[in-house]
Simulated scan of single mutants.
Amino acid sequence: MTTENPQPAAPTEEHSTRGAYVTGASFDRDMNYIDDRITREGGGGWPVEAGRYRLIAARACPWAHRTLISRRLLGLEEALSVGMPGPTHDQRSWTFDLDEGGVDPVLGHERLQEAYFARFPDYPRGITVPAVVDVPTKAVVTNDFQQITLDFATQWTAHHREGAPDLYPAAQRAEIDALNRWMLHRVNNGVYKVGFAGSQEVYEKEFTALWEALDELEERLGRSRYLMGPRITEADVRLFPTLIRFDPVYHGHFKANRQTLASMPNLWNYTRDLFTTPGFGDTVDFAQIKRHYYYVHEDLNPTQVVPLGPDPTPLLEAHDRDRFRTETWGPDGTAPQAPLAAEVVDPAHTPLHVSGR
């Protein structure tokens, strides 16, 4: 992938947003990641092996959120444990402040930074989530968020649950890849380009580009249940974390405020559809999401006051997506079981979800 910012980034933000907020400048995301892969063959020294690795994924971060969704949909909970840092962090690293004693119970780390330094003592880039850590060495394997979920879908198949969906079907991979590249730059990262624009001119340019992209998605979702047709794919896994954060965060905090997502019929009903689909809504923690953005981004919100709204309960209202042909899980697929007890989102942080389907 083309590097957007070749200079080393300070270890801040979920993907080093601080430091890119420069007066007059466009937001450039550092796209240099540890590109090691965990594969069936283990050619790079990292074979797929149940119990060997730990996914570190903060619920607050949209890039990490997609790995939590993929892990749930594919049923990898028993094969791949998860550690969840809290929603805030300092200049050094994400911390395991939600765990007893502030220490990850498997890795023994207080900070994710320790896993990076265990492998690269002088690691110069951002300490980002998601990251996959090798439990025996307690060292990071990869933080390549673009590749991690693709490997979950294609390399971890021996550990998929019975009835797991094919999130990356071979016949659609080229189209999924093209759509995902477009969404990354225009939507997933597009909201950051708007929010961290360093001048009025840059802001207006990125604002226009973002809403043109959202209008295209609104039109696309007027033709099919999901982005690629009647079944959920990797493309939906990547879009949902951005959409679910749009009205609570990006609309106001990032000034992406032409209109709310709730005012766009297809995008809003699509979001409600996925929110009430097992594996999507049951990974959403609105309290952590808002705490992260409004507290950590002091340059955008110096008071660190976290808003109480919007009310998330309309996400549970009926949607209209059943008007389209639907094979949500594929011809022989089934919905995932309920989340592991230790991974259930605090009910006070999000509305109760509709389960099953």
Rank of each mutant, 00 (worst) to 15 (best):
F27S: 02
T88P: 02
I244F: 04
L112Q: 09
Y226P: 05
A262E: 15
R59P: 05
S93R: 09
E216Q: 14
H319M: 01
P351C: 05
P105E: 03
R231C: 12
N301T: 07
G75S: 07
D320S: 11
Y192M: 05
K205T: 13
D28A: 14
V306T: 10
K290S: 04
Q200E: 14
L221R: 13
A60L: 08
N143G: 08
A197T: 00
W268Q: 09
T88L: 11
G356I: 08
R125I: 03
D236E: 04
D36L: 07
P312R: 06
E234L: 15
P302C: 01
R186N: 15
D311T: 08
P265N: 06
N257Q: 02
T350R: 14
D247K: 06
R92D: 08
N257Y: 02
E327D: 14
W156A: 02
T208Q: 15
I38L: 10
T313Y: 00
R29F: 10
Q113V: 03
F275V: 07
E206Y: 02
L80S: 12
P105S: 06
N5A: 14
E162W: 01
P121T: 12
Y33P: 11
E162A: 15
V135W: 08
A341C: 01
T208I: 07
A79K: 10
A209G: 02
W63H: 12
D346E: 13
P165D: 07
P169S: 11
A131P: 00
L217N: 12
R29E: 11
L179R: 13
A25L: 04
R357L: 11
W329Y: 12
F254M: 04
R223L: 09
E212Y: 00
F286C: 02
N301S: 06
T142Q: 10
P336Q: 04
P331V: 12
V194D: 04
W46V: 06
Q155H: 11
E204A: 08
T328W: 07
T326P: 00
K255E: 07
A178C: 08
H109A: 09
I289N: 04
A10P: 10
D122T: 14
E327T: 13
V237G: 04
I244N: 12
H15V: 13
K290D: 02
T12F: 11
E219W: 03
D299H: 09
L352F: 03
N143K: 10
Y294S: 13
Q200H: 09
T233Q: 08
N189G: 14
P314L: 15
E206V: 12
Q91L: 01
D99Y: 15
Y33S: 10
R325W: 07
D177M: 07
D320V: 12
V132D: 11
A178L: 10
Y116P: 07
D285M: 01
A164L: 08
H292E: 12
N180E: 15
Q146D: 15
R161E: 02
A10I: 10
E13I: 00
T2Y: 10
R29V: 05
P169L: 02
D285K: 07
Y293C: 01
M183D: 01
N32P: 00
R40Q: 14
L227H: 01
A131I: 03
A197N: 05
L352S: 12
G279N: 07
D282N: 08
T17Q: 13
E204C: 00
A57Q: 09
W268F: 10
